[in-house]
Design a protein around this nucleic acid. Structure first.
Lengths: 134, 134, 134, 134
DNA sequence: GTGGTCTAGACCACC
DNA sequence: GTGGTCTAGACCACG
């Protein structure tokens, strides 16, 4: 997972941290950036790297397992599960829609035009994808 | 306020509803879309329109009052407060930054490119601003 | 907190209950009777002890947090915040002045002399401080 | 009434203004400072003198009438009612007890000793009774 | 166990 | 009509 997902988490967000982790992993699998059978970082590793309580990571992994996204093999670690969870380009756009809508509502309230907002987003996303972090 | 804010709220969002209302009103004032002295919808009205409990709206208004964004006059209603709370264009962009970052992280995990994301956003924002409703 | 505040609340008072709680805690901190870092009773505990709805206590704690008087740690409890909020003797007398004035106005209307009033007050306060209870 | 009651009202108090007026008049009658048959100031007069909405004074008079404390005679004014509502010294002290208790609780939370509190009160009451106001 | 949010509905104060 | 407080009780997140 290290060389893939810009894995960062916002502890001040109202979205629970474990939920942010679930979303990011789910999305990474949907995008094929985490391949079938690939190992996820250990609970402790990821907890350290995200500066988060290990319980929180453990809970995220538990939910991912419940969703069939990952599998835990006792004593060996957590791995991306077997079934194909990749989404088409359209499916991935659809998965992102609620977040997009929420941002647009805020931008609209702030009086930021669609074009200006698109520019802001392109710029921020560009910065992210150059300087990734696991 | 009628012709101002595209006032909609997502009850499934992890962000508390009262917080969404606070954000939207704060942003609308920052953008100058709610003018000084202008009346906000009554607690009950807005509750009906958002399909939310009046207490939830009341809490949002209470917090907005503590923040000095609005003033309430007993028996008369809630109004945008006196001091100028408008923000410059740069200030408004900055206010939006955390939400933009969050979206970009999700898009990155989904493997959506900055350009594609920007297009998605422009499109969604465009739709919103054409068909408004308070 | 157990051996600290004579914590009682008057539900018939026009002063909202949550406000009475805020005042009492704020005063106790100002007096140094609640020390920095000390735990407050849990919301549910205090609610039972005051025979009040938990929501009412929660609201008081929320306001105290916004005022920087206490800090809440999720899943752990509510604690007196770090900054020093203690007041000098003069400051504490000043904080009490409005309540004193109000009582004096009532006593005056009742035709009770300043000396008699002082005696009444000394006596009532003495009883309170002997038989405390949180 | 002019030369009797230190008639002042605190608009920031959570106690409704009309209620403060009711209390003060009731107490003045209990003390014998307003005699049977004596005229109260007109609604408008008192409203001006207290800088308060006439409706508020009118409501106070209405409640006083309901309580049998005063009588309204159409076209002539409001007067202290017939029955003897004066209280003994003990009765007057008892009427004041709730207010005394409330103050003592606050003082206790502030860590002010009964003796110090009594001094504060004597001083404030003394000032009040020298410089009265209608 | 902790605090946090939300709903439903009652009652009060003010204009 | 307006906002404000309170209760009762459900459900969630976090440790």
């Amino acid at each position: 997972m290290s060389p893939g997902i810009p894995f960062q988490v916002d502890s001040r967000s109202p979205t629970p941290i474990y939920d942010q982790i679930v979303t990011l992993v789910t999305f990474a699998v949907a995008a094929g950036r985490l391949a079938r059978g690939e190992a996820l970082p250990s609970v402790r590793q990821l907890a350290v790297s995200l500066r988060v309580n290990p319980n929180t990571v453990a809970r995220a992994y538990r939910e991912l397992e419940r969703d069939g996204i990952v599998e835990t093999r006792q004593g060996s670690g957590t791995f991306v599960a077997g079934g194909d969870r990749r989404l088409s380009a359209a499916g991935r756009r659809k998965a992102l829609a609620p977040s997009v809508d929420r941002l647009c509502a805020e931008a609209s309230a702030l009086g930021i035009s669609p074009d200006d907002l698109a520019d802001l987003v392109r710029e921020a996303a560009g910065k992210l994808s150059s300087g990734d972090r696991a």
